[in-house]
Simulated scan of single mutants.
Amino acid sequence: MIELVPQLPLALRAPPDQRLSRYVGAPAGLLESLQALAVGSAAAGLYLHGAHATGKTHLLLASCAEAEAAGVQAAYLTLRGLHGRVRAAVDGLERAELVAVDDVDAIAGSRDDEVALFDLHNRLHDAGRGVLYAADAAPDALPLVLPDLRSRLAQCARWALPVLDDAGRAELLRQRAAARGLDLDEAALDWLLRRCSRDLGSLTAIFERLDRASLAAQRRLTVPFLRQVLEADQG
């Protein structure tokens, strides 16, 4: 995978939990479309949009991981924090066979940055490369100032990501626990979901805390243990 600033190895940018198969609640056909794009059998553009914590970054990193596993060179870039510096950040990315651009909404309204992204899109298109975008909203709903960029983004196959319901959040935690060999009983799962934030980012962070505590204490994830760990954090 092409390394970007800050430079991080694939193992850190796409940990085992971030794989297409681990995404819960995908619209029908989405994972297949991402898989095809990742392995180069569908050289086109895809655009994912959804509210905070709907798994956009997960899917971008997972697609890059799928590409790398298939021998396809991929690059991931978040535009968050790059206001005024997008042109330098995207220089040379057309060398990658798949480019995943996250947080497109972060540079909306900055004409120079929008022009830089527009130019990258055209270079990727001309080179027959795959490109995957993610943003909080669909192209027509972003406050873009460059009509040509809006047009290019709108030409991509667009997928809206849903917010997980309680059943989806429970399945996500079951998958995380199973992948790590953790024993998470249903009573503990119900207790956790009732008392923790519905935001997936916060829920995942809590699960990571519980995973570390369980390993350190060699304890199962039971209701008494969850209460002990989380109350200790609050105190």
Rank of each mutant, 00 (worst) to 15 (best):
M1K: 01
E3K: 10
P9T: 15
A11W: 09
L12W: 14
R13Y: 03
R13I: 02
R13L: 02
P15T: 02
Q18Y: 08
Q18T: 01
R19D: 04
S21G: 07
S21C: 06
R22V: 01
A28N: 08
L30A: 02
E32G: 05
Q35D: 03
A36T: 09
A38H: 00
G45R: 11
Y47I: 06
H49Y: 06
H49P: 12
H49S: 00
A53D: 09
K56D: 09
L60R: 08
A62V: 00
S63I: 00
S63N: 03
C64H: 08
A65V: 03
A65I: 04
A67G: 01
G71Q: 05
G71A: 03
Q73L: 12
A74C: 10
A75S: 14
L77A: 10
T78Y: 14
G81L: 05
H83S: 14
R85P: 02
A88M: 09
A89I: 01
A89E: 04
E94G: 02
E97M: 07
D103F: 06
D105E: 03
A106M: 03
A106Q: 06
A108M: 09
D112Q: 14
D112S: 11
D113V: 00
F118L: 13
F118I: 11
D119C: 07
D119G: 02
N122E: 14
L124M: 03
L124R: 15
G128Y: 06
R129Q: 11
R129T: 01
G130K: 13
G130I: 04
G130R: 09
V131Y: 05
Y133S: 00
A134M: 13
A135G: 00
A138R: 06
P139S: 13
P139L: 12
P139W: 10
D140W: 13
L142V: 01
L142T: 00
D148R: 14
D148H: 14
L149C: 12
R150C: 09
L153M: 02
A160S: 07
L161G: 04
V163F: 15
A167T: 05
G168Y: 06
L172G: 01
Q175R: 08
R176A: 11
A179L: 04
R180N: 03
G181W: 15
L182Q: 07
D183A: 10
L184I: 08
L189F: 15
L189P: 00
S197V: 04
D199E: 12
D199V: 12
D199A: 08
G201W: 04
T204F: 14
A205P: 07
F207S: 01
E208H: 13
R212N: 04
R212P: 02
A213H: 01
S214E: 05
A216Q: 11
R219L: 14
L221H: 09
L221Y: 06
P224E: 13
F225W: 11
L226N: 14
R227F: 10
V229C: 09
L230F: 10
E231M: 13
A232P: 11
Q234R: 07
G235P: 10
